[in-house]
């Protein structure tokens, strides 16, 4: 029998800056796009260019992810762009843990934890849902998924993902 390997690799991602942006996106969308340097994502979408990404979190909330070194400038730019507009811009870089789940069977790992139809989940979509017992969000990256969840459950989430990725536990019919 061939050596069994895990269904996917679980890698902690460090060093991301994150900004939560809340505003009327119809009114302030252009300003946010300009300040963040990314086009506005559509409903339940995410746009990624270079090392920045802008995700749609709710009808009036976006999440900007970028290298931590660029965080301070981005906060300033966003606040400047939204001056006079009812809005909320906050640094949430420390609020979440980030994991990459990569490998051919990464979909199967998520299929064990989230009530999401992953066959109907294309690149460019962002899904806020739950992974077992905790809220989380994920989207596709080359070779798998990026996942974010609250920082306090990082240990739980890692063990959860590694359990679901245990060698030999493919979902394929046997």
């Amino acid at each position: 029998m061939a050596e069994m390997t895990a269904l996917a690799r679980v890698t902690r991602v460090e060093g991301l800056g994150m900004v939560t942006i809340r505003a009327d996106l119809d009114r302030a969308g252009d300003a946010i796009a300009g300040a963040s340097g990314l086009p506005l994502p559509g409903r339940v979408g995410i746009v990624a260019e270079g090392d920045r990404a802008l995700g749609w979190m709710s009808p009036d909330e976006l999440l900007l992810m970028l290298p931590h070194a660029e965080l301070a400038d981005a906060l300033t730019d966003l606040r400047e762009a939204l001056r006079g507009e009812a809005s909320l811009v906050a640094d949430v870089s420390d609020m979440r843990c980030v994991f990459d789940l990569t490998g051919e069977d990464a979909d199967q790992v998520l299929a064990k934890l989230s009530p999401t139809d992953l066959e109907m989940f294309p690149p460019g979509a962002l899904r806020r849902t739950r992974l077992a017992q905790v809220p989380a969000a994920f989207w596709r990256i080359p070779g798998g998924f990026r996942l974010i969840a609250f920082r306090s459950v990082e240990v739980y989430l890692r063990e959860l993902l590694e359990t679901a990725a245990a060698p030999g536990t493919w979902l394929d019919p046997r």
Binding site: R43, V44, S58, P59, P115, R127, R128, T129, R130
Partner: peptide, 12 residues
């Protein structure tokens, strides 16, 4: 109706 996602009851 806000995000258009059809989800199961446990997400609400």
């Amino acid at each position: 109706p806000h995000c258009g996602i059809a989800a199961e009851e446990t997400e609400f």
